[in-house]
Simulated scan of single mutants.
Amino acid sequence: MPVDTIYKTRATASGGGRDGHVRSEDGNLDLNLVVPKEMGGPGGDGANPEKLFAAGYSACFLGAMRAVSSKVGVKVPNDATVTAEIGFGPRSEGGYGITADLTISLPGLDRADAQKLVDTAHQVCPYSNATRNNLDVGLTIV
Rank of each mutant, 00 (worst) to 15 (best):
L33F: 11
V34R: 15
V34Y: 09
V34N: 12
V34P: 09
V35Q: 11
P36L: 02
P36N: 06
K37P: 08
K37V: 14
K37D: 06
K37Q: 12
E38H: 06
E38M: 12
E38T: 14
E38W: 09
E38K: 11
M39L: 15
G40F: 03
G41S: 00
G41C: 03
P42F: 00
G43R: 12
G44F: 00
G44P: 02
D45F: 15
G46Y: 07
G46F: 09
G46I: 09
A47Q: 15
A47M: 15
N48K: 05
N48I: 04
N48T: 02
P49Q: 01
P49M: 02
E50C: 04
K51S: 05
K51G: 07
K51M: 15
K51N: 12
L52E: 02
F53V: 06
A54M: 03
A55N: 11
A55R: 11
G56V: 01
Y57H: 11
S58L: 07
S58A: 10
S58W: 05
A59P: 01
A59W: 04
F61Q: 06
F61E: 00
L62F: 10
G63C: 10
G63M: 09
G63I: 11
A64C: 07
A64Y: 05
A64K: 02
A64N: 06
M65P: 07
R66K: 15
R66Y: 15
A67Y: 15
A67W: 15
V68E: 05
V68G: 05
V68F: 07
V68L: 03
V68A: 04
V68C: 04
V68K: 06
V68H: 10
S69V: 03
S69Y: 10
S70I: 12
S70V: 09
S70R: 13
K71R: 12
K71P: 00
K71L: 13
K71Q: 12
V72D: 11
V72F: 00
V72G: 10
G73S: 02
G73V: 00
V74A: 10
V74N: 04
K75E: 13
K75M: 14
K75R: 14
K75V: 13
V76P: 04
V76R: 08
P77Y: 00
P77K: 08
P77C: 03
N78W: 09
D79F: 01
A80M: 03
T81R: 14
T81N: 14
T81I: 07
T81L: 04
V82M: 07
T83E: 15
E85K: 14
E85M: 08
E85H: 08
E85Q: 12
E85D: 14
I86G: 01
I86D: 02
I86K: 01
G87M: 05
G87F: 07
G87D: 00
G87C: 09
F88P: 04
F88G: 08
F88Y: 14
G89P: 02
P90K: 15
P90W: 14
S92L: 00
S92C: 00
E93S: 11
E93H: 00
G94S: 06
G95K: 08
G95E: 11
G95S: 07
G95Q: 09
Y96M: 08
Y96R: 12
G97L: 08
G97Y: 11
I98G: 13
I98C: 10
I98K: 08
A100K: 09
A100P: 03
D101H: 10
L102E: 05
L102S: 03
T103E: 13
I104T: 04
I104F: 01
I104Q: 04
I104D: 01
S105T: 12
S105Q: 15
L106N: 01
L106H: 06
P107F: 02
